[in-house]
């Protein structure tokens, strides 16, 4: 598995490109970090790759997953997972149901699905919390639950949008190693955007600096 960006460039409504055209290849299990000042368009870059680009942005270049061009596919058909700053668990579902929501529907049967979710909860140190309201979890628990939800959907690539920036310093370490361990063991190509150099160091992969403007 690999994620390739080919001369990816995004222009805002005013026609100005957000950053210079970006080309890179992320092999399976590797984490590439994109760094840059806030406002340069890091999140917009992830939106473009994941297919969530908002109204008014123009996009050129290509996104390839395992050599297949997914640029024209809608977000839901790309199989590209997404993690945000705040975990964004759905507030109307229990913790376990949030994970079940990520589970592919090809896994049939109530008992089997429940077991898969319980296994994931245990892996994330959340055993016994299936029926909990996500709002009652701690920040770290929420972040782990969100990562498990994303991984259960079996993504072919993973995008991390400053996923550790809202956690306390101590938790941040734990969450970093937890996340990167899972990424490596699942062999998923991963793109991380952050403005924290420690994130980049922990990720261990290549670091790309995103500069404002086109040229």
């Amino acid at each position: 598995m690999s994620l390739d960006l080919d001369a990816l460039s995004i222009r805002a409504m005013n026609g100005q490109p957000l950053f210079a055209p970006l080309s890179l290849t992320i092999p399976a299990g590797e984490v590439v970090t994109v760094m840059g000042p806030s406002g340069v368009g890091k999140s917009t870059l992830l939106d473009a790759i994941g297919g969530h680009l908002g109204h008014g942005f123009h996009f050129s270049g290509a996104v390839r997953l395992n050599g297949r061009d997914v640029t024209s596919l809608p977000a839901e058909a790309r199989r590209i997972g997404l993690m945000f700053q705040d975990a964004l668990l759905f507030p109307h579902m229990s913790v376990g149901d949030n994970l079940a929501f990520g589970l592919p529907c090809s896994l049939r049967g109530r008992a089997k699905r429940r077991a898969a979710v319980e296994t994931a909860l245990t892996q994330a140190g959340l055993e016994g919390l299936y029926d909990r309201d996500p709002a009652t979890l701690s920040g770290g628990q929420r972040a782990r639950a969100a990562l498990m939800r994303t991984l259960l959907a079996e993504p072919a690539a993973l995008l991390l949008d400053e996923p550790f920036s809202k956690l306390d310093a101590g938790l941040r370490e734990d969450m970093r190693s937890f996340t990167f361990e899972h990424v490596r063991s699942c062999a998923i190509p991963t793109l991380l955007v952050t403005h924290d150099p420690e994130d980049a160091a922990a990720a261990g992969g290549p670091v790309i600096a995103l500069k404002a403007g086109g040229a």
């Binding site: 809608p74 839901e76 997972g81 945000f84 964004l88 959907a153």
Partner: peptide, 28 residues
């Protein structure tokens, strides 16, 4: 509600626009 982000989260998990709407946005 942060619709755009819930929409992105739902679609990144493989759900279509309308289904995210019914399963994630409407209940909220």
């Amino acid at each position: 509600i942060s619709v755009a982000r819930h929409m992105a989260a739902g679609r990144a998990l493989g759900y279509g626009r309308g289904i995210v709407w019914i399963k994630v946005i409407m209940p909220q």
